[in-house]
């Protein structure tokens, strides 16, 4: 490589060739090791231990090595299994809803047929600046008949919707995520749409393609990479499911303290004072996140060109 100016011997050459890059890369890498990889390593180790007392339990507890006991306990607990099942169900509800909404909004805005496109873009993007906890507090008010003008209105016309019932609660949570992130994802997609050269549309129109054909044959295939990115981020986002159910939990019988794996881990760490089980649960979620991202990218990339 040509990135070195004086290279007297091969040995020194090797070293000087490496050094400038590491000067740029090292600071981030060190922080990344400390705040991303080290916690994961710590969780892996901690998840192999447990705390034990004896008698009435007022003596100091002991730490004992239990190998994979915490994992087998967590995975064999019906409550944790149920929380994993709920997470997958939520994924199945949330991901198509999010990707479809963001794509439809982006396509509608970019047809050029709408009035005030700038206004709409800003309005849709606005919720992204609202922290998840605060959004959940707000929607919590809108999900309760006593404070919700929407539910009061629906009731007046004879529709008795209970958003926080056990059948609806996942949709109620999905709605909060949709509200928060649909606009952000839409911006990613509109940006991709805008980068398509207009000549392509003109050529298609000359060939007699209508708006629908344009969408199916040109726009969607050309923004495929961005759709994949949006899907991937949404999948990762759904695996984080924590704040929304935590904040809604006191309002409904449908959300238990171990509603999602993250909530179960949090409850173990902070309510039950059982960090090892919490660590094991965190590791399980991380493994699922990697597996799902990997499988998703494999499926996407096997069908044609590499997207991401």
């Amino acid at each position: 490589m040509a990135f070195t100016r004086d290279t007297p011997t091969p040995g020194v050459r090797q070293r000087t060739r490496l050094s400038p890059a590491w000067g740029f890369v090292a600071p981030f890498t060190v922080m990344f090791l400390a705040f991303y990889l080290a916690p994961i390593a710590y969780a892996l180790v901690d998840s192999l231990f447990a705390t034990k007392s004896s008698g009435l339990g007022f003596g100091p507890p002991q730490r004992v090595f239990v190998f994979l006991r915490n994992y087998t306990d967590a995975l064999s607990s019906p409550a944790f299994q149920a929380s994993l099942g709920r997470l997958f169900l939520f994924c199945i509800i949330e991901v198509p809803l999010m990707v479809a909404t963001a794509t439809v909004l982006a396509l509608l805005l970019e047809t050029g047929k709408a009035l005030w496109p700038r206004f709409f873009r800003v309005v849709y993007f606005m919720p992204y600046g609202v922290p998840g906890v605060i959004a959940t507090l707000l929607w919590g008010f809108l999900y309760i008949p006593a404070t919700s003008p929407v539910l009061q209105g629906l009731k007046a016309i004879g529709i008795g919707l209970v958003p926080l019932s056990s059948t609806n609660v996942l949709f109620a949570i999905a709605n909060i995520s949709l509200w928060l992130y649909a606009g952000y994802n839409m911006i990613i997609l509109t940006a991709a749409l805008q980068s398509i050269p207009t000549e392509i549309y003109e050529a298609a129109r000359i060939d007699g393609a209508g708006e629908w054909k344009l969408i199916w044959l040109i726009k969607l295939p050309l923004i495929r990479g961005s759709i994949v990115l949006v899907t991937l981020f949404t999948v990762i986002g759904t695996l984080q499911l924590f704040v929304e159910p935590l904040v809604l939990s006191p309002l409904t019988t449908a959300i238990s303290s171990d509603f999602t794996p993250n909530m179960a881990a949090y409850a173990n760490a902070f309510t039950k004072n059982n960090s090892s089980v919490a660590a094991a649960m965190a590791v399980i979620v991380a493994i699922i996140a990697f597996a799902m991202s990997y499988i998703f990218l494999r499926i996407v990339n096997s069908k044609g060109r590499q997207a991401w």
Partner: peptide
């Protein structure tokens, strides 16, 4: 009160919610 009452609270709340639900 014994130790681990906090675990009991979350167990009662969870079980109560699921019984009603």
């Amino acid at each position: 009160w014994p130790p681990l009452v906090p675990s009991l609270y979350s167990a009662i709340t969870d079980n109560m919610k699921s019984a009603i639900d």
